[in-house]
């Protein structure tokens, strides 16, 4: 590992393994929590405030990003109680478009970088991309080189994260582990520690381009790593599950897990984000249902 990460020896528990069956049972128990009425409204409101509204398609255009930014700022224009989302997440090429549209809003601009989603371009190119993205975006979502990680070149992965961290200046750095490619929970835990130790502000599950993307057990492993890292170093790291989160129910489940594993200090967009492209309308429908008492139609909610 790099000099930065070698400074302080990892606590013994950092490298402990994870038992799949026990973890998944724990996650299933968290998912079975029944969140009703005012608790549900609290969670749905929080889910919106923690959302990184995302579009990462090859077919993205300035017009598409403009629509996305409008939705981000005013998810439900007719309901003033609905807050804006946390950020809009796009490719670096469109970050400036998002910047223009969000200039007078609290919504931040996040850009994916470092050869998203594969992370397999030459490192100089990835670094340059991150530096360029940081010139316009508030937040950088970088991917790690999973090939290097799986080949056991942990030092290389850590050094690359540290280099990107340095390159993006004070920008908020989210490190995407792409957990669906890591081959198991032990590696999720290791990669989490590695990313946090190398300078990540957030650790993020997935690009959304690989299945499985975010899963609750993976998120729980990352939460436990974040908790342990805070204990060991005093540094607070955030979590961003991303990919495949489409329903209000899923979003609430992640918030329940954060609440019970990390504690409610983490129930803030400063420490928790949900990366999602199609979650928002389901959350809005559920809020409307809670207020009106009746089930809703998707056609009452605008596309992003």
């Amino acid at each position: 590992m790099s000099a930065a990460t070698a400074r302080r020896p990892l606590p013994a528990e950092a490298l402990l393994g994870v038992d799949q069956v026990g973890l998944e049972a724990r996650a299933a128990m968290l998912a079975s929590r029944s969140i009703k009425r005012e608790a549900k409204l609290f969670a749905l409101d929080l889910a919106i405030r923690c959302t990184d509204l995302t579009s990462l398609e090859g077919a993205d255009t300035p017009g598409r990003v403009a629509t996305l930014c409008t939705k981000a700022m005013h998810p439900a224009p007719l309901d003033p109680t609905i807050p804006p989302v946390a950020a809009v997440c796009v490719y670096p090429a469109l970050a400036a478009v998002a910047r223009d549209h969000l200039r007078c809003s609290p919504v931040r601009v996040a850009a994916v970088a470092t050869g998203f989603p594969g992370g397999q371009a030459p490192f100089e190119g990835r670094l340059a991309e991150a530096r360029a993205a940081a010139a316009v975006a508030d937040e950088i979502d970088m991917v790690i080189d999973r090939g290097a990680f799986l080949a056991g070149r942990y030092g290389q992965v850590a050094d690359e994260i540290a280099a990107v961290k340095a390159a993006v200046g004070g920008r908020h750095l989210k490190v995407i582990l792409e957990t669906g490619e890591l081959g198991g929970y032990d590696n999720v835990r290791r990669a989490s520690w590695l990313a946090m130790a190398a300078g990540a502000d957030f650790i993020k599950t997935s690009t959304g381009k690989i299945q499985p993307a975010a899963t609750l057990p993976v998120a729980v492993v990352m939460m436990e790593a974040i908790r342990d890292f805070a204990w060991a170093t005093g540094r607070i790291i955030g979590l961003k599950p991303a990919g495949g989160i489409r329903t209000a129910r899923q979003a609430i489940t992640y918030l329940v897990a954060v609440n019970e594993v990390l504690g409610d200090d983490w129930l803030t967009p400063e420490r928790f984000r949900l990366g999602a492209s199609s979650l928002l309308n389901d959350v809005l429908m559920q809020i409307a249902k809670e207020h009106s008492g009746g089930y809703q139609s998707p056609d009452d909610f605008s596309d992003a």
Partner: peptide, 9 residues
């Protein structure tokens, strides 16, 4: 004696 162990990766 009955022994249980999870099966996982």
């Amino acid at each position: 004696k009955t022994i249980w162990h999870p099966v996982g990766t």
